[in-house]
Design a protein around this nucleic acid. Structure first.
Lengths: 215, 215
DNA sequence: GCCTAGAGTAGAACAGGATCTAGTTTTTTG
DNA sequence: CAAAAAACTAGATCCTGTTCTACTCTAGGC
């Protein structure tokens, strides 16, 4: 969603526990912390995810929590990444679709909206973390961004399509509008149906624009 | 940018000092606080705007600051509103333009980018406040939103054009992408030129889409 | 078996946003 | 003008993210 940076895909883990070198007990700790964060999020959204409570509920010292995740935003961004990867199959279209790209993208996004609205408080915590992350820790959520843009790309063009510049442009536009709309929804500035409508219109206009220009 | 809410245009000021009933000394206080906030912002961005310091620099008690602005985000959102209204003339096209809407909108946004990049730290503080505001205080930045969408609308269609649903749709898309890109810029995930390029592409695609659909 | 590095723990301490209290000044109203 | 109400002040207080300190525990190297 941002400009392409070559970079070595996976997060370099500049601090904390590199996922690669983690012992089983460390992976387990990490999971417990993420799970605790989500549990608290589902109880009261972003604000209820308090670092002391996450640590306690995960059976871990506060210092350890901070060793694994250098800030609350990092913690929730990781939780979001895990959450999203769990949603991937629920959301991607079966590859049998013969419809046009607009329809497939829209269907995918509507499923995403369905999934997110299943637990609004969790969604609120995660989206807010992502928003804060863009604002404060910059590049460290690129993987989430890429996951999102990847989903849209796959939905639009299928898993095998090579995404060129123009594809990326429209995928970016749609992704940005999608995230904005989710924020509006969470800020009670849009209803869920409003979000769906906005997405439908956006996908229509943008894909029409692309087609018009590619002639 | 959000869904239309009938509402009585001006902010209802549910708390604090209603701008309408303000005595001169109150208006002066309010200005001092906003000015202090911007001064601190230009020194170190969002983080340097500390409520105690704003109060001190404005010659006002902390409690008074909170009476006028119920939170740091509200304070900076108001500062943003003031800042934007100051930018309005610098950014809107002279009404002589015979170019097409896309060109005018793009020129306007580029001027906006110029103005914002003039003091990056201030821009960072204000945009971050706006982001946080969408996330946490919901509707209370609708006026900023509306100012922005209004600018785009006027730039695209001229001051007299009545904006219909389809106009609003594309204006919204462009506005959302614009804000996203600004955030990417401030998070060092995009260069200023990248922002300009993204805006140019977005405006092109979206307006092409609109034209294609309105045939 | 001992030693060391690093991971983890418990909890104090710090920082800055937000709230509250008590008292003073200003404004409004009758 | 006097009394009441509202605004303002100074400063303590609270809350929560983050950092720091001192200590313990564990795993690998010799």
């Amino acid at each position: 969603m941002s400009e392409a940076v070559p970079s070595a895909a996976a997060s370099p883990s500049p601090k904390g526990v590199p996922a690669a070198t983690a012992t089983p007990s460390q992976q387990a700790r990490r999971e417990r912390m993420l799970t605790a964060a989500l549990a608290l999020a589902s109880r009261g959204g972003y604000d209820e995810v308090q670092m002391r409570e996450v640590a306690e509920q995960a059976g871990v010292a506060l210092g350890t929590l901070y060793r694994y995740f250098p800030s609350k935003v990092h913690l929730l961004a990781s939780a979001l990444a895990r959450h999203l990867s769990g949603l991937r199959e629920a959301v991607l279209p079966a590859p049998t679709g013969f419809e046009d790209p607009a329809t497939r993208v829209l269907a995918m996004m509507n499923r995403m909206v369905d999934e997110l609205s299943r637990d609004r408080l969790v969604a609120e915590a995660l989206i807010q973390a992502m928003t804060l992350a863009s604002a404060t820790i910059g590049t460290e959520i690129d993987d989430v961004d890429e996951a999102m843009i990847g989903l849209i790309g796959v939905a639009a063009f299928g898993p095998d399509h090579v995404i060129d510049e123009r594809d990326k442009l429209i995928t970016n536009i749609i992704g940005k509008v999608f995230l904005s709309d989710l924020r509006y929804w969470l800020g009670d500035r849009m209803t869920l149906d409003g979000v769906r409508a906005s997405l439908a219109d956006t996908v229509t206009v943008v894909l029409a624009g692309q087609q018009a220009l590619s002639r």
